[in-house]
Design a protein around this nucleic acid. Structure first.
Lengths: 215, 215
DNA sequence: CGGAATCCTCTTCGATACTG
DNA sequence: CAGTATCGAAGAGGATTCCG
């Protein structure tokens, strides 16, 4: 129990890896990035992870002050997990790793899991602040039955689960299609006429979003 | 063999972790950061890692194009490992993780390994470009029998193994002492008069270096 | 001598079954 | 639904041996 494997090196990198370098841990952080999640939500988007292991990781992360457990007020009363300030500090790590991994997207993608939450995380990774000059708007994406929205404002972007108030457009597609669009393997007009995408809103805003989130 | 555990997620973060998320891997990259290393060099600074495991990791990293093996010309003829361009691209990852881990330096440091190479990596992590305005000089550090130098120039810094040509100062101490100095737990004058540090060169430059590499 | 291969033990992982 | 218990499989760690 006590002996969670440690590198025992007086080096900040090794100490960081002692906390978040274990298998699955950074992927849990990625899932919590867009807001609080329940145990089953996490499990659903981390295929292959056992319930015991997820419970153990969550316990350790809570003990280290990286996430916190919160119980919603009754009658909901459900337990959720969310990042603390300290946990949010891992954003730079996830961004760096995600950017480094971008060229790897595209290999034998057949037997890989495609989830809406991966797309949401991917958008944050591909976000280019320098392409937002003056842009201040919100985009809504519906992937399967999961909806999230992206708010672009003055060099930053927020990605949150749930629908948006007044989005410049609403776009509906599945995760695979959206990834193919982002990679430029599929043209939007073609996807639209093939019925793979539903689009409602400002076409100009779609063009801007393509420039802002670019692989 | 083939089945090196993969997350199988169509997400750039997960794909990156499939390559460099395994135990020890990022620490190997850290070690190669200051230049080519031999097998035994790596082993010496990664206490607890077995020869078989190091060999396996190196093989995988070479296969993935992150490091490359090079044989020096005869008569030396020794094999070394060094980062490729792709491997160098992991710098942002190590910097982000290292910065996030800085507050962890300082706990029960007693039973931890202290190595010169950790100090060198730490300096890169704590480097603050904004504090270098107009500074263009080199500092040399001798820790035990290992020497490395830091070249600061126009917003960047290079850290390499070996002595420097014309350093602004040469400083000799052990890793533990240097870390205590960096953390501000030990005053330089006190360390100097206690004989824990040998210093030769420009005291003003030492002051600048403190501002440039700051925890 | 560097480093790859072998063995053995221990820990961690992954999947499923079970419980409050 | 949120976890705990369990167990076979894979990986890690340490020592030793083999090969160039």
């Amino acid at each position: 129990m006590r002996s969670s494997r440690s590198y025992r090196q007086a080096c900040s990198l090794a100490l960081a890896l002692d906390l978040v370098g274990e298998r699955w841990t950074l992927l849990i952080i990625r899932q919590l990035w867009t807001g609080p999640k329940r145990f089953k939500n996490l499990l659903a988007d981390l295929p292959g992870m056992g319930t015991n292991l997820l419970a153990a990781r969550l316990k350790k992360l809570e003990r280290e002050g990286i996430i916190q457990r919160r119980s919603l007020p009754p009658p909901a009363g459900v337990r959720t997990y969310e990042l603390t300030e300290r946990g949010l500090g891992l954003e730079a790590v996830i961004l760096a790793l995600g950017k480094w991994g971008l060229p790897l997207l595209g290999g034998r993608s057949q037997q890989y899991a495609y989830r809406p939450s991966y797309v949401a995380a991917g958008m944050r990774v591909t976000f280019r602040p320098e392409a937002t000059r003056g842009v201040r708007e919100t985009y809504e994406y519906a992937i399967g039955d999961e909806v999230f929205h992206v708010r672009v404002h003055g060099g930053g972007c927020d990605i949150r689960q749930g629908p948006a108030e007044h989005p410049a457009f609403r776009l509906k597609a599945d995760a695979k299609t959206l990834l193919a669009l982002a990679k430029g393997e599929l043209r939007f007009d073609r996807a639209l006429s093939a019925g793979q995408v539903e689009f409602k809103g400002d076409r100009k805003a779609l063009g801007r979003s393509h420039a802002i989130f670019q692989l």
